[in-house]
Amino acid sequence: MDYEGMVQMFKALESSGLRGFLGCSSAIYETALVEFFHNSSVRDGKVVSTVQGKAVEIIEKVFAGTFELPMEGLTEMTDVPKDLVFDARSAFSMGGEQLKTTCKKREIKYEFLLLKDNLAKTVTVKAVSFDAVTHERFLMISAIHGGVKVNWGRLLFNIFKDMVTPALKQARGFAVQICILLKGAPNLDLGESKEFPPLKILIAKNVCTYVAKNKNITVDVDEPVEPVVKKAAPKRRPAPAVGELIAKQKRTTVGRAAPAENELMMVPVVQDPEPISIVPDVTPKAQRRRAPKRKLELQKGFC
């Protein structure tokens, strides 16, 4: 492989003691694997289950011995030396600046990014986003890069116990490793097997493709982005103070304009009005008065 940093990462991974766990290849017995997880539980620090009506018991010593995992060293990632983590923050950085122990994947070099993905999918097996580097994974790759001794036998077996504990939100994994353990159990017929997906096996060609894809992603992310012009928020009228009169908005109507205030007249209002008498519509005709008849008398001597 031409990528020197990637070669050094794989050598550090091999020296950590995870070669037997990550490098094993085996067929997958899907039916037996599903039955194992369905019936599995933890009793007295052991993982017990029933497959095909037969009891299966896995202890920490058998688990670590099958994959040649070291049984000495750190059992908690929080015990990784702080000075080693401080140096790793610069060694893992793509740009050379000090990284945070929780960062985005585009900020970390390709070889440590691939190591982070391998640990996330095959060791910690957490059902979370792979876009970010968590604090736990950062400490784990720091320990592998710095050559710190880790008790992988106990650490991985504890993760294995969390997988079969329903109350915990630990994703189920270790499919190939569990099939190897079931294959070594006495008097157990696992039935038909399936080949391990070849795309999940790391070879030099897949590693080069991985680097090429992440280079394209990094270039797209680092390109300058045009500033987005934000629209100014509409100004809101301040709320009136307590005791201040609130002016009501006048309604506008279509029609004759309302009379002005100076055109209005003051009309007195009767306090105790009397009821209005009802007048009939048709009134009787008034009788005519006739004048008395007058007699015309002629005076004497008038002719």
Results as ranks from 00 to 15, higher is better:
residue 236 R to V: 15
residue 198 P to E: 04
residue 221 V to L: 13
residue 219 V to M: 02
residue 280 P to F: 02
residue 277 S to R: 09
residue 261 E to T: 13
residue 221 V to C: 04
residue 278 I to V: 11
residue 223 E to P: 01
residue 213 K to M: 06
residue 204 A to Q: 09
residue 230 K to W: 08
residue 230 K to F: 09
residue 236 R to M: 14
residue 262 N to E: 08
residue 240 P to K: 01
residue 212 A to K: 04
residue 213 K to G: 12
residue 198 P to S: 10
residue 288 R to W: 07
residue 232 A to Y: 03
residue 268 P to L: 06
residue 281 D to F: 09
residue 196 F to I: 06
residue 243 G to Y: 01
residue 202 L to V: 09
residue 265 M to N: 12
residue 217 I to F: 00
residue 256 R to N: 05
residue 292 P to F: 06
residue 216 N to W: 02
residue 259 P to M: 00
residue 229 V to Y: 15
residue 224 P to R: 15
residue 284 P to E: 14
residue 236 R to S: 15
residue 243 G to R: 00
residue 249 Q to S: 09
residue 252 T to E: 13
residue 249 Q to L: 08
residue 223 E to L: 11
residue 248 K to E: 06
residue 220 D to C: 00
residue 288 R to E: 15
residue 205 K to P: 02
residue 212 A to T: 10
residue 200 K to E: 12
residue 214 N to S: 10
residue 201 I to S: 07
residue 193 S to G: 10
residue 194 K to N: 12
residue 280 P to K: 09
residue 210 Y to N: 03
residue 252 T to F: 11
residue 237 R to L: 09
residue 288 R to D: 05
residue 297 E to Q: 14
residue 201 I to L: 14
residue 291 A to G: 09
residue 279 V to L: 05
residue 281 D to N: 14
residue 296 L to N: 14
residue 201 I to W: 02
residue 248 K to L: 05
residue 223 E to M: 13
residue 246 I to E: 04
residue 193 S to E: 11
residue 233 A to R: 09
residue 234 P to M: 06
residue 281 D to P: 03
residue 233 A to I: 06
residue 205 K to A: 06
residue 286 A to W: 01
residue 296 L to E: 07
residue 296 L to W: 07
residue 243 G to P: 01
residue 294 R to D: 06
residue 224 P to V: 09
residue 200 K to W: 05
residue 275 P to D: 10
residue 220 D to M: 00
residue 275 P to F: 15
residue 209 T to A: 03
residue 234 P to L: 04
residue 255 G to V: 05
residue 267 V to E: 05
residue 207 V to K: 14
residue 206 N to Q: 11
residue 239 A to F: 13
residue 229 V to H: 06
residue 295 K to I: 14
residue 288 R to G: 05
residue 212 A to F: 07
residue 257 A to F: 03
residue 189 D to A: 03
residue 266 M to R: 10
residue 274 E to W: 02
residue 244 E to L: 13
residue 282 V to W: 00
residue 236 R to P: 07
residue 250 K to G: 07
residue 207 V to C: 12
residue 189 D to G: 15
residue 257 A to L: 14
residue 198 P to W: 05
